[in-house]
């Protein structure tokens, strides 16, 4: 029997997976095990499938995804910290036929940029907002985020996030349920919470992101908002495997997965 060579294996009929053409050749700077790479891949695949790469403009945040523009083969502007929704608004208002999306983390979207986030959603801008929530500031080295869980240790809550001192005076505050809050606003069309910790979660997340872009393409108004509950194994100080398990055991009870709003209607649970 003849020896099987590499050339025999690399054949079109054997292809089960390939990188999206809309991801560049630049290697990700993200930590191994981080969810950003998967979310990037899903967005690139969706834009490729929808065939809108020649009219898409992305807005990258300040935070770990600040250089997202290096990885997507579409036009991009890099926003100031928290201002991505304002940037996306500016572009969409002057180019209503372009496909515009913002990509932000929890500190960017739900702390310094809360004002821009709420008002962009409240105006019902016809854009897609991607929100990656890992409950911590990644780029600056693991400080408390607005979405940090109660009791979670970070560089600025080394003894665990404590919303109030034992005598009841305010301290670190509570995990901010920004996605529930946005779902209440009349300007949001589609609000969903997804994850990428398993193959099944990735498949659901891709469906949601595709819908969030399709909605934008087919309509004139309404924010399409996708939260992705993700991990930060480096700053959570865990292995990637442990981080994904910790996410399911601790993050998901506080940030449960599923659609919160569809076609401007809140989903009753």
């Amino acid at each position: 029997m003849a020896e099987i060579t590499l050339q025999d294996i690399i054949q079109p009929e054997n292809l089960v997976y390939e990188k999206s053409k809309l991801l560049t050749e630049k290697p990700f700077h993200y930590c191994p095990g981080c969810g950003h790479g998967t979310v990037h891949r899903i967005i690139a695949e969706v834009l490729e499938e929808l065939g809108v790469d020649d009219r898409t403009i992305g807005v990258s945040p300040v935070g770990c995804a600040v250089m997202a523009y290096d990885y997507f083969d579409v036009d991009f502007v890099e926003a100031a910290h928290g201002r991505a929704p304002a940037c996306a608004t500016g572009i969409k208002r002057v180019w209503p036929d372009k496909v515009v999306f913002s990509y932000q983390g929890d500190g960017d979207l739900a702390a310094i940029g809360t004002c821009e986030t709420i008002h962009t959603c409240n105006r019902g801008e016809n854009i897609t907002m991607i929100f990656v929530n890992n409950g911590i500031y990644g780029m600056t080295g693991g400080q408390m985020a607005p979405t940090t869980l109660v009791g979670m240790k970070t560089a600025t809550t080394p003894y665990g996030r404590m919303p109030q001192w034992p005598d009841g005076t305010p301290n670190n505050g509570f995990p901010l349920q920004i996605t529930q809050l946005l779902a209440q606003l009349p300007g949001t069309r589609y609000v969903t919470r997804q994850a990428v910790f398993s193959a099944a979660a990735v498949r659901n997340c891709k469906k949601a992101i595709k819908k969030a872009f399709q909605n934008q393409i087919e309509n004139k108004n309404g924010v399409n908002f996708v939260e992705i509950v993700s991990n930060c194994n480096s700053n959570w100080k865990m292995s990637a495997v442990d981080a994904n398990k910790w996410l399911q055991d601790n993050m998901l009870p506080v940030y449960p997965l599923g659609d919160l709003k569809d076609n401007f209607e809140l989903i009753k649970k």
């Binding site: 403009i57 807005v59 502007v77 926003a79 100031a80 201002r83 304002a86 940037c87 996306a88 608004t89 500016g90 572009i91 208002r93 002057v94 180019w95 372009k98 004002c115 821009e116 709420i118 008002h119």
Partner: peptide, 24 residues
């Protein structure tokens, strides 16, 4: 021409930044 009352001066200038980056 688009006229938009933004939620703050910060938001307004960042709208200007991105719309200007888009050639307008």
């Amino acid at each position: 021409m688009v006229v938009l009352q933004a939620e703050s001066e910060l938001a307004a200038i960042n709208m200007v930044y991105a719309a200007g980056a888009a050639g307008k």
